[in-house]
Design a binder for these strands. Sequence first.
DNA 1: TAATAAAGTTAGGTTAGTCTAAAATAATAA
DNA 2: TTATTATTTTAGACTAACCTAACTTTATTA
Lengths: 219, 219
Amino acid sequence: MILSQTEENYLKALFHLTNRNGEQAEVGTNELASFLNVKPASVNDMLKRLREKELVENERYGKIFLTNSGQKIAVQIVRKHRLWETFLYKKLSFSWDEVHEVAEQLEHINSPKLIEQLEKFLDYPEFDPHGDAIPNAKGEIKLQKRTTLSEVELGKSCKLIAVKDSNADFLQYVLKVGLELGSKIKVLNRQEFDGSLEIEIKKNVLSVSQKFADNVFVE
Amino acid sequence: MILSQTEENYLKALFHLTNRNGEQAEVGTNELASFLNVKPASVNDMLKRLREKELVENERYGKIFLTNSGQKIAVQIVRKHRLWETFLYKKLSFSWDEVHEVAEQLEHINSPKLIEQLEKFLDYPEFDPHGDAIPNAKGEIKLQKRTTLSEVELGKSCKLIAVKDSNADFLQYVLKVGLELGSKIKVLNRQEFDGSLEIEIKKNVLSVSQKFADNVFVE
DNA sequence: TAATAAAGTTAGGTTAGTCTAAAATAATAA
DNA sequence: TTATTATTTTAGACTAACCTAACTTTATTA
Ligand SMILES: [Mn+2]
Ligand SMILES: [Mn+2]
Ligand SMILES: [Mn+2]
Ligand SMILES: [Mn+2]
């Protein structure tokens, strides 16, 4: 089945919204619309078409789900996205805050051979530059049990294993505070009124906002 | 200026049709339409929009030209196309008949850094896998004075320097008869009634059609 | 439970890019 | 020079993807 870029983006968005950190989540028209920066009415139009192609299922006023074939297609797009990010990062000297935007375009290139060969060229990488697992050709993903930094208990140490990839400013800031994939983080204190954290990284103590901590994944 | 893929394809088509083997050529609505596999009416609509963006010039019932800025954009697309073909060929083990189709998609990816870095990664190649010159970042192209094999005088020898890139079957056939970029070809005889040629390649004598010879460029 | 708010849907409209069918102009041949 | 053919343009229509404004249904709260 040949899909437009727009259709692919809807499927990918649904994939991300329905699988939040391993858990299943319910998704409605409004949420999908604001995620994609379109209006709920547009989402409705598109859902009609995706339903006709049997890629999504939803009842009137009900929640939205990917069908099996919708899910398969979405995973392949995620696979392409993460392989391209890895290529840009490893081979073309992009920084980790620059790769996502370009991968958003490259993920829609349609050529099975290209992806096969790209994966081989990169020597079958398991994770992208932000720590997200790259699905294999069959669509299987290693699922990492990951927590956000916000949820870590006071006094405990953890290891940074992934970061939200879609905000360049955030990613630059992560590097600036001295963090990278694999960094050890100790949570010293939590400010109750705004959820901000005091953390220790390589003997340095600093304070990060709740929002920051929500975008950092640890194990 | 942000252009759609379709607009980019019109500009590229005009670039190719108005610069045939170094010479300037006049292009009309019908010719552009059949090149792009659309109807003349569609071309008319698009020309109106491209005129408004000052990328093409044409008078009612007159021939079509790229403006300077239209030309610049077209060359950049050709540059991207040829760099991607080179990448696929050199780094991802694509054969020379497979690269064009995928490059048709990749040429529309919009990221100046990507192209810069790709060119660097490929070590500033001068020619694509079909022997076409790759424009540099400034849009300058080395112009090769090239003739088609059909035009070579009887008895003369020549060197294969480029081939038309858009037909995979033709490209496979070129390899099959033992030719590649740089091959020496001697033209032994010309059949007047159908323009077919008898040629010698590495002591082998074979006959090729006029159409074949039209798609092979030599110096 | 009734009122209000939030979420979702429908109707009608826009733009890009395409098409067919018909009309206008230019080029060519009788 | 007129008739025929080829080329180009116009008018009107379609689909994908979006929008606004109004409406309906579901959820929340008083
Ligand atoms: Mn990404
Ligand atoms: Mn995308
Ligand atoms: Mn090509
Ligand atoms: Mn193209």
